[in-house]
Design a protein around this nucleic acid. Structure first.
Lengths: 231, 231
DNA sequence: GGCGTGTACTTTGGATCCAATAAGAAAATA
DNA sequence: TATTTTCTTATTGGATCCAAAGTACACGCC
């Protein structure tokens, strides 16, 4: 807590929760008082958040909260799509280690276990989120490339760009179950391609996989306050 | 100059020139004195540079200069490759405006003019760099997506990831000329694909185009001090 | 002579102070 | 009454100060 990175994290949260509305200027002093710290850590955090893409610099008068359109969200998912695709291709082509392969297969088993009941409950959703996060993280880290990992991490700071954004719609659990079944199938095929060293296929599958929330039409109606979204 | 962004720019330059050696800790006070400013703007700049990937945070003791391996440089180019590929695909699929098309064709003409002599001189190289930069910038901006543009911009902060890094080898001007001829051909084909709305083809061409410095074997022997590079 | 503890120093993180500047409000003039 | 000019105020950028933490060195003890 003595570290200013917590200020970054707290601000990230507050922004994506809409506490600071999009497109509105955000003052250092006000934030500092609300967080109970001085201006200094806030100023530092602003620079970080700016680079993460959550704040934009206004001509010569501080920062304002970035507003995202539906288009932006789609783009962020597309960016993740090509970057994770790249990671999968690299991993397949450079060869996957037995350790990583074992870990990925464990993810497949764990994922299968979640879906075994034929329906979803709350714990299932949480478990799947963990397994899914582990799966994606494993592939990226296995490429051993900090450059790719960083590019992905930065993109994932944008709200709903991350593969962790499950967007589970508790009103349509049936449909959500179908989505996870498809996701699980994707995972199986991706591991298959990785094991077989099929770079292009791994990339293609991973790219398609990233679109799952778009394909399943659960992209909008988000908690995050989009700028000009009506529906 | 009164803006601290100049500190960021100056530091970026100093780092990529090797004034601060890779993998070595970088102290706020020392930098502040060298730049003739106080610690505050340096501290702010460090946060920006960290997000840009030029500095890495050391456990709880400030920052050190990031070191890049050959592998990292290749990865950065691959990242640019897939991102510019994405931009090209989007642009082709969403349809390219007549204005942008005209501007791109102007780039093609200008590029052709540079190569018309059959050989390169110093001015030619500079001109081509400008035209090339304009060409790539046009395509990215035409997608109207800040998210993609930002992802690219961040990646381009890594040394030699940017398409502006021509890496012209004045000792082998003949080979460099051949490289630019190929690049020009790529540009022509890319515009063709964009005009025809062929998204996949545009993406594929753009991705290949990004690899030109790798294909032409002029990737290493760089000014930037790589960590463990012998050749 | 080696190892451990303690102290001094270096360096970062946070708070406050001061100056520059831009925005906003009020007043004066046309 | 509208417009322009000036003054006040809010807010950022830079500098300095203080506290906390970590490192290194030295001294002492085993």
């Amino acid at each position: 807590m003595s570290d200013n990175s917590s200020v970054v994290a707290r601000l990230r949260k507050l922004i994506s929760e809409g506490h600071y509305p999009p497109d509105e200027r955000i003052a250092e002093l006000q934030v500092a008082e609300e967080l109970g710290v001085s201006r200094t850590p806030v100023r530092l955090a602003f620079r970080t958040l700016e680079q993460e893409g959550l704040l934009v610099r206004v001509k010569s008068r501080g920062f304002k909260v970035r507003h995202f359109t539906e288009q932006d969200i789609v783009c962020a998912i597309e960016v993740r799509s090509v970057l994770e695709g790249l990671a999968a291709r690299r991993l397949a082509e450079q060869g996957i280690s037995p350790q990583v392969l074992t870990a990925l297969e464990q993810c497949l088993d764990d994922g299968q276990a979640v879906l075994a009941n034929g329906h979803l409950n709350h714990d299932d959703v949480a478990t799947w989120a963990r397994v899914n996060s582990r799966f994606h993280g494993l592939i990226v880290r296995a490429t051993q490339s900090d450059v790719i990992a960083d590019a992905l991490a930065r993109n994932n700071h944008l709200p709903f760009a991350s593969s962790d954004s499950l967007l589970v719609d508790s009103d349509h659990l049936e449909r959500e179950y179908q989505k996870l079944v498809v996701a699980q199938q994707h995972h199986v095929l991706i591991v298959q391609a990785l094991r077989g060293g099929e770079g292009s296929r791994a990339e293609m599958l991973m790219r398609e996989h990233a679109y799952i929330n778009i394909r399943y039409g659960r992209l909008f109606g988000l908690a995050y306050p989009l700028a000009d979204v009506s529906r």
